[in-house]
Structure formats: C-alpha cells, structure tokens
Computed example of a mutant assay.
Amino acid sequence: MIFTFWIAPCSLVLRRRDDSGDVNNLKPKGHEIMNTFRKLTTAAALTFAMLAGASSASAAAITEGDTFTDDSARFDAAAAELDGQININTASAAELEQLPGIGPSIAERIVSYRAEHPFKQPNHLMRVKGVGKKTYAKVKAYIVIEGETNLR
C-alpha cells in the first residue's frame, strides 16, 4: 500500500491506495496529523535556514573584499585591439573566434548554420544559437556579409 498526504487549508486527508489501484480516504488519527505537521514544519524550517545561510554566505564573500571582474570590460579591451572586418558568410571558424564574445563552439555553430542558410543581413547572426543581442552588439562593428575578411 502507498500512503500519500494532502494538506488542505484546514484539514489533513490521508489517502490510501490499495494494491488493486483503488483509492480510499481514511480519517487520520490525531497523532498522525501532528507527526505530519511536525515533519512539514521541520522541512520548511530547514529549507529556510539553508536559503538564509546561502544568501548570508554570498553576502559575506562580497563584503570580505573579494573582487569581481566585469566581463564587458574584458571584451571591450579585446575589441579595442581589433581592426578590419569579417565576412560572416565566408570566414573560417578560426577567423570568427577573433570576434569578441565568439568562442570555438559558437564559431562552429555559425559555420554550420550558414552552410544551409547564408546570411542576408548582419543581424541574421542572432539566429544562431548562442548569439543574442549582447553578443551581436559586441561584434556588429566588425561583421559584413559581402567583401573580404581582413580582421586583425
């Protein structure tokens, strides 16, 4: 037999499922209600304590002087070194990796996507999984759909 508990706003119902699959409602005894209530409140208290502990631990890490770097600053520095443009319809995966925010996996996705769907506009790059508005904003100054690749 499998027992399951359902908590209603003002009552507790103990449901029993027989081996045949029939569900029978039973009236629980007082100690069954108290045991169930005790287990639920203990679980809720432990969950709250874990959440509160995790948030205070992360707050302590921030206040202890840990420094966090902003990825956008890193990409801006890399983009400042770039000169030229990349034709996203003809560039190799290695050439695409030079773009800020484009790693090896996204570069491969771009190459495989354009094999079936050549880019007609630069913003069509956002149709590739992993290239969203933020990544496109980082690369749009360096991409073209016609001409040669001369990014350095």
Rank of each mutant, 00 (worst) to 15 (best):
T63C: 05
I33T: 07
M1A: 12
G30C: 02
G84I: 08
Y113C: 00
L151E: 03
T63F: 07
F68E: 02
S92N: 08
N89M: 04
A141C: 01
N150W: 03
I110G: 07
D71H: 03
R74E: 11
V111M: 07
V23S: 01
A54P: 00
A49P: 00
A60T: 02
D22I: 09
S11P: 00
G101A: 02
H31W: 10
A45F: 05
G103H: 06
N123S: 13
T67D: 03
D71L: 12
A52S: 15
A137H: 04
A80I: 05
R16T: 11
S58Y: 08
Q121I: 01
G53S: 15
L12V: 14
A115E: 15
F48G: 04
V131P: 05
G65Y: 09
T4K: 15
I143M: 08
R15S: 09
G132H: 05
T149L: 06
L82C: 10
N89S: 05
S11W: 06
R127A: 12
P118C: 07
K140N: 08
G132A: 06
F75D: 12
P28N: 01
A59E: 07
N150C: 10
M34D: 09
E64M: 13
L151W: 03
T4I: 14
E108W: 00
S72I: 11
I106N: 04
K138I: 00
L125I: 15
L82W: 04
I7F: 14
P118F: 07
G21L: 07
T135Q: 11
N87R: 07
E81S: 13
L151Q: 03
D76S: 13
F75T: 01
D19R: 13
E116T: 15
A43S: 10
V128P: 05
T41P: 00
K29L: 07
F37I: 14
P104V: 13
K120M: 06
N87M: 03
D18R: 12
G21K: 03
L82M: 07
L14I: 10
S56V: 14
L99I: 02
S55I: 14
A59V: 01
M34C: 01
T135W: 03
N89Y: 06
L99S: 02
N35Y: 07
A52V: 11
V139S: 06
T69I: 08
N150L: 01
R109S: 14
L96F: 05
S55R: 13
D76V: 07
I86G: 03
E81I: 05
V131M: 05
A54W: 01
Q85T: 15
S55D: 06
T90G: 06
S20W: 01
I110C: 05
D70A: 04
E108T: 13
I145H: 08
A79K: 09
A61W: 10
R74H: 10
S105P: 00
V23C: 02
A8T: 03
L46R: 09
A78N: 02
M126Q: 15
R17K: 14
P28L: 01
Q85D: 00
M50S: 11
L99R: 02
G84Q: 07
A52H: 04
N87G: 10
A80R: 15
A93T: 02
M1E: 07
C10Y: 11
K120S: 13
A78S: 08
A93I: 04
G132V: 06
K39E: 13
T63G: 11
A94S: 15
P9N: 11
D19C: 04
D18W: 09
A77T: 08
T41H: 02
P9Y: 06
P9T: 10
G147S: 09
T36R: 08
